[in-house]
Design a protein around this nucleic acid. Structure first.
Lengths: 173, 173
DNA sequence: TATGAATTATTCTATAATGGAATTGTAAGA
DNA sequence: TCTTACAATTCCATTATAGAATAATTCATA
């Protein structure tokens, strides 16, 4: 039945190597997804962690600047900040020079949470990269950093922050 | 003002190297997103392309099997298949042995579309990996394939297919 | 072969996420 | 003082999504 010269469909040839670009997206999405899973244990989503991470590097930033940095609409950032503030991880401080603006700051509790996030990230990395030698891990990191830089990606800013919050926020009833 | 021993917050030290696991997720998401952009030129989303891709390897598969393969709810797969069918890229053939099941097949037009997708993917890969030598590209591919295999990721199945369709489906009015 | 359980595809529905348009309060310039 | 610009927030309409319900069919077995 199967004509020669055509692909043999009778036994799906699943062994093909995927294109590098596909592997990159596939493994990256897997890593992100698993990281999100781990974050649930401390009641946060990936966007939340991205905010804390960036707030540590850019304290006193305004909401608009942060939204711009994370490529996120202000209207989407607000509820995420509300979450973090209600958990006591950040505070919106009044700006004495311009009362329209809020200066965002990590609280001590927020810094502790960030330490937890870093530990979770380390554990996660260890698990995901377990198939690689230390040397290979270094190589991978060096290559990826080069790609990120050449593609104009800002350090610490995940494109996925721009969508999906995804954390079962505890019902406030 | 700045106390030694503490991090200097006055000029955000954006130069830190990101953790490898973060780079992986970041660059991967970037690659996926850019690929999605390119797919718009042929009116398809990434899940659509994933379906076509997998249908080529597993012709005559049922919808349930496909949904399971792509880690997607059947109720989400149905409208995606509707899109592809209305564009004439796939067909749902009647299964003579079990009239509950549909056997999914690419049409010739669907195969042509898949060829376009492959070309788009090649162009995309070339652009994203332009900072790397051929040797480095091979190394990256080898490393990523090892990670994918060790993490139990099926070839050709992107975890992100499970959500987001994201294509301006033309209004059917 | 009749009857009930299981299976496939589909549709329905309630909830949630999202982008963009108001809205409110404040600042700055003419 | 007006008027315009801007920051944060709220509102709203649209879309996406998971999961339940439905309809048609097959299967198991009494």
């Amino acid at each position: 039945m199967t004509k020669p010269g055509k692909r043999d469909h009778s036994s799906p040839p699943r062994e093909q190597r995927s294109p590098v670009i596909f592997l990159l997206a596939q493994v990256g999405a897997h890593a992100a997804s698993k990281f999100g899973e781990r974050l649930k244990q401390i009641g946060l989503s990936r966007p939340h962690s991205g905010i804390l991470w960036n707030l540590d590097f850019a304290p006193s930033i305004t909401q608009r600047q942060l939204a711009r940095l994370l490529h996120m609409l202000p209207s989407r950032l607000v509820p995420l900040l509300d979450d973090l503030e209600s958990k006591g991880l950040i505070e919106r401080r009044a700006n004495p020079h311009d009362r329209r603006r809020h200066a965002l700051h990590l609280t001590n509790k927020g810094r502790t949470a960030l330490e937890q996030i870093r530990q979770i990230s380390r554990d996660h990395q260890k698990d995901v990269l377990t198939a690689l030698s230390n040397e290979e891990q270094r190589t991978l990191g060096e290559i990826l950093q080069r790609l990120a830089d050449q593609q104009g990606l800002a350090r610490g800013v995940h494109p996925g922050y721009a969508r999906l919050s995804q954390v079962e926020t505890e019902r406030k009833d």
